[in-house]
């Protein structure tokens, strides 16, 4: 049966509709089998390796929460020193807590030293494994268990940390954001990253069904909305320069993304919520401006030309 051939095997314990499990399954379809994977502590580590079982059909190691990147660097160094490198790719996987927060310094060291590894952050925007606590990746106004919405609070009051830009500032050859809402975009970027020598950073937006408070069936739809509203722009950096951006036709209002998630539901109930949604719309507008996300309507372009003439 085709289903049984996955290098990230079925029977793993991720929640129904988990966007992060889809990330692992798809990643292995694209990258395997000649890979070695390191995985930081987190949901994907826990659900995939309940001893004595393992969902992994490729060599895989979990050490700690913060050190998936240097463990990968050690593996890469070992392969290099013994001439076993060949075509074997080393991939480090970590959630946003591991990547943005606790393992950030270690990741920076690995990127700066030029190890030939692909680091992938699956970004579900909070510490989901420990029960939905705020991380440096949690977006503005999201309610988490440590930034709960309440009479005096609209939830998390800090914007999402811009890790891709920081990674690009390391001078690494390839940095990209992608989303499980766009499997083709994800596949293309993983392939591209693996074809490049040196440190690569990929950040993939992936849902957490209980953490975001969503209907699992809408897992991919909601991820697409994050892109279509301009809240999660998809782009590539090559050698520090932005070289591609996924353009958006008829960018949708952020409301359409927010109203499908319980983590934002307070914005639709609390007095002043409208103003907060406007602020989030402003974040999306700034993204659109910064990354030049919007596709100008052809007619509008023609009108412009006419005007200029």
């Amino acid at each position: 049966m085709a289903a049984l051939e996955d290098l990230y095997a079925s029977g793993h314990r991720a929640c129904a509709g988990c966007g992060c499990a889809l990330f692992l399954k798809t990643l292995m379809r694209v990258a395997g089998p000649d890979v070695i994977v390191t995985n930081s502590t987190g949901c994907m580590e826990v659900v995939s390796t309940p001893y004595p079982e393992s969902a992994w059909k490729v060599p895989w190691i979990h050490s700690l929460f913060e050190n998936n990147a240097p463990v990968a660097a050690g593996i890469e160094a070992a392969l290099k020193a013994t001439g076993r490198k060949g075509n074997t790719k080393v991939i480090a996987i970590g959630g946003d807590g591991a990547t943005f927060d606790i393992g950030f310094g270690l990741l920076s060291g690995v990127m700066e030293r030029g190890h030939d590894i692909l680091y992938i952050c699956y970004d579900n925007e909070a510490y989901m494994n420990t029960g939905i606590q705020r991380s440096g990746s949690t977006p503005y106004d999201a309610s988490t268990t440590t930034t709960p919405a309440g009479k005096m609070s609209f939830g998390n009051q800090r914007p999402k940390k811009n890790v891709p830009a920081i990674m690009a500032a390391h001078g690494v050859p390839y940095v990209a954001t992608t989303s499980m809402g766009y499997p083709a975009d994800f596949t293309k970027k993983v392939r591209k990253a693996l074809s490049i020598e040196g440190p690569k950073y990929l950040q993939v937006h992936a849902t957490c069904v209980p953490g975001w408070g969503i209907d699992g069936a809408l897992s991919l739809e909601i991820l697409r909305l994050a892109v279509e509203t301009g809240l999660y722009p998809l782009y590539e950096y090559e050698n520090g320069q932005i070289t591609s951006v996924k353009k958006i036709k008829n960018r949708k209002p952020v409301k359409e993304y927010l109203d499908k998630q319980k983590r934002y539901s307070h914005l639709f109930k609390m007095p002043g919520g409208d103003r907060e949604i406007e602020k989030i719309q402003h974040i999306a507008d700034l993204n659109a401006k910064h990354f030049n996300l919007d596709i100008e309507e052809k007619a509008t372009a023609k009108e412009k030309e006419a005007k200029e003439e």
Binding site: L4, L7, A9, S10, G11, H12, R13, A16, S48, T49, P50, Y51, P52, E53, S54, A55, W56, K57, V58
Partner: peptide, 24 residues
């Protein structure tokens, strides 16, 4: 229960024996 391995090294793809269909 399984007999333990040194370092708890685990065989690949063995979650297949666990059927998550029962959650449905």
């Amino acid at each position: 229960k399984m007999r333990l391995t040194i370092g708890l090294v685990t065989k690949p793809g063995t979650t297949m024996q666990y059927h998550t269909g029962g959650w449905r």
